[in-house]
Design a protein around this nucleic acid. Sequence first.
DNA 1: TATGAATGAGTATTCATTCAT
DNA 2: GATGAATGAATACTCATTCAT
Lengths: 172, 172, 172, 172
Amino acid sequence: MTDKKENILKAALELFANEGYNAVSTNAIAKKAGVSEGLIFRHFENKKALLDSIMQMAEQKINIVFAPILFETDPLNVIHHSISLPFQIEESEYDFWRLQFKLKWQSEYYNVDKMKPVIDKFIWAFTMLGYQNPALEATFLEQIIETISIGILRNGKESQLNYQQFLINKYQ
Amino acid sequence: MTDKKENILKAALELFANEGYNAVSTNAIAKKAGVSEGLIFRHFENKKALLDSIMQMAEQKINIVFAPILFETDPLNVIHHSISLPFQIEESEYDFWRLQFKLKWQSEYYNVDKMKPVIDKFIWAFTMLGYQNPALEATFLEQIIETISIGILRNGKESQLNYQQFLINKYQ
Amino acid sequence: MTDKKENILKAALELFANEGYNAVSTNAIAKKAGVSEGLIFRHFENKKALLDSIMQMAEQKINIVFAPILFETDPLNVIHHSISLPFQIEESEYDFWRLQFKLKWQSEYYNVDKMKPVIDKFIWAFTMLGYQNPALEATFLEQIIETISIGILRNGKESQLNYQQFLINKYQ
Amino acid sequence: MTDKKENILKAALELFANEGYNAVSTNAIAKKAGVSEGLIFRHFENKKALLDSIMQMAEQKINIVFAPILFETDPLNVIHHSISLPFQIEESEYDFWRLQFKLKWQSEYYNVDKMKPVIDKFIWAFTMLGYQNPALEATFLEQIIETISIGILRNGKESQLNYQQFLINKYQ
DNA sequence: TATGAATGAGTATTCATTCAT
DNA sequence: GATGAATGAATACTCATTCAT
């Protein structure tokens, strides 16, 4: 991947994440990336394809982030580790995740199955730990994690910090 | 408020909620509302003011929805009632709430203080019930409610139904 | 039809006829018509539709021009009148016809059947006059008329003038 | 001439002939020719020069086609041979001739004098044969040939076949 | 000779907004 | 209050052309 193509992807990510896909012009992306507007369309078929390209990279990143949980063998660790996950997001990646959550509202990008393996792991963990309703507990936990993530992305890590221990205490 | 003005508001709400503010043209709103494009600008200074007008109606509606909780005197009822709240959303109002959640990502429309009275009530309830960390429990509950709401708006009420009892059982 | 819409049609006709559809920008049309570029697209769905609109007017004009021939009852007059037809084109309508002939090369606009009634009339005329092969004579005559027209549009009426009598003499 | 340069010329000819000069992008030419877009501009100064190059080849080809007529010594043969000419066009050269006729509408490429020697030969032939108005007969014949050519290029050879004998019979 | 990344001016089209009626 | 014609700036995208390699 050439330097300039990467510049375009970075600029687009930042702008899409903060202003929204439709609010960002290809002109703005080009300026931020320091390239000509035409170049965007030599690297990506159209504006939409640029977003798709970013989202594809996203899917990979999500897989990497959740991989350790899938390999975890201790049920309680699965849960604790999952709760800690949102707090490990580096600030440099906030844009990236912000875009994910924004686009969850666009049905096209909302894919329920993406989280299936993680939820299955949660069910397994709650079953192991003898919870009464593992399936519901699992989706509940997933939603909690999503909610914390949103909180962090909106108000910063500090705002949610003592929250982490609070949640871990809930699952003992 | 004239019929036509209301048509405009309804059309704009539906379109903004489903496609996003920037993706909707005033032309599209006019067509859906069955009025001329010019009329939109007689009733609202500009497109942005139309959105603001919708959001203002929103704030009122939110106040109405949460009012009963603020007047509730039994702590446990506060919590149980709050959990039930998302399930009482009428399908005809989904667009309305969808727009709220979408716009939460636009800093301009995200107002932390809007929920302050509710959270204070939660803190009071958890204190009454002798929970160890009422403040954190309160924001936790608020986030749970938000999460359920999102689930309902995205996947329908049925998808979250057995969830309601599950949560009420958690708070006894 | 508003003044400005007519201006657009006139400007487009002149430009399309002289420079070709693809060589003319909507910007150029707007400037020549003395309107904003946007107005073109309020009156015509797109550039292509503008051309179509012109071509539709053309079909009507062609019908009007050939109508007298269809009503002619004297076989020889049918032929003589037809030969004279191209010489009756007013100079103000040259653009119009130039465009017709240019677009004959675009299959989409080339419609064989358009001339069917005229050719049938020719066949009738040549049959009446006892020609050996009326069908071939008919298409031959049609092609001659087309060829004269092209000559006039390219080099002016004068260049083909003594040609008219020459051709009429051929059919006695 | 290298292979690739020839590929470019062939691709450009085919595309120009069928879609028109302005409707064809250098990108499209490059793709069809299987070369990089840049190479076009190594071989030709610009897009226009590429067309000119094709048209220059055209002039040569036209000279070759009409040469036998110029050397013909029998007046009647001049005419008969000329009428047969369009029917000898090979299908592989249709694009080539289509482009010629299309561009006749672009004044820049329409050169009256190109056909001068042929018309002079026609005048000579008709004079020899004792026709009353050799000059007019000559341009008439030229236009007939052009008309047949157009018919063949548009509707195929078969469509005009019985036409050939019909015309030859006219000139005895 | 040949490539392919890169550009900047240009293209058709859309958009929010204005205004005369 | 309401329309619909009209605008001008902006939009996504294309194009012929350049240039380093």
